[in-house]
């Protein structure tokens, strides 16, 4: 019961604030609602007992908005932005994409309903809380034992992006 209430609270919060991110005119308000949306997602992670994902979501994504704030404050002229056209005329493209995504989710939902144990297409194993017990340790082992190579490739990619940003921003080091 409580679990359901909490889930719908977080999910509703995430959806509503995600909509507000797009519709607010003031960029600072948008950033604040982005924080709320990300925090609500973190709450859902916590409810799924994925503690590590919860805190990583907060540190990386919510912390990253800090920088976004500074960009908004320093680069966006709010007075000008208030009088500009907010939406462009590609609503129909977005509409079609949203419909396609909705259909996909509905299909996945149907498949799970038909076969709760999980079919070949959609394998959603149900984990108990105990299985996730030392959460941080489990994530660490999985990353560094089962997925070592992809993890390292992703790290190198990020490093390259970082060095590239520094080189492009600063000609003379």
């Amino acid at each position: 019961m409580i679990d359901k209430v909490l889930f719908y609270f977080f999910a509703g919060l995430a959806v509503v604030s995600a909509i507000l991110v797009v519709t607010r005119r003031n960029a600072v308000h948008s950033a604040i609602f982005l924080i709320t949306a990300l925090l609500a997602t973190a709450g859902i992670f916590l409810q799924l007992r994925a503690e590590f994902l919860f805190i990583v979501q907060i540190i990386l994504y919510v912390g990253g908005i800090m920088v976004l704030f500074i960009f908004v404050i320093m680069l966006v002229n709010l007075d000008v932005a208030l009088h500009q056209v907010q939406f462009n005329r590609q609503t129909w493209v977005a509409g079609i994409l949203a419909l396609a995504l909705g259909a996909q989710v509905a299909l996945a939902f149907r498949l799970v309903q038909k076969n709760p144990q999980g079919s070949e297409i959609l394998r959603l194993p149900r984990g108990s809380a105990a299985q996730l017990a030392p959460n941080t340790e489990l994530v660490g082992r999985t990353l560094f034992q089962n997925y070592m190579l992809p993890f390292e490739i992703a790290s190198i990619l990020l490093l390259v992006a970082m060095i590239g940003a520094v080189v492009m921003a600063k000609r003379k080091v």
Partner: peptide
């Protein structure tokens, strides 16, 4: 289980209040 990370992550959100 995430004790120290939790403290670091949550307390660093105080900067939003300042900004």
């Amino acid at each position: 289980n995430i004790g120290l990370l939790f403290i670091l992550g949550i307390s660093s959100m105080g900067i939003f209040g300042i900004v």
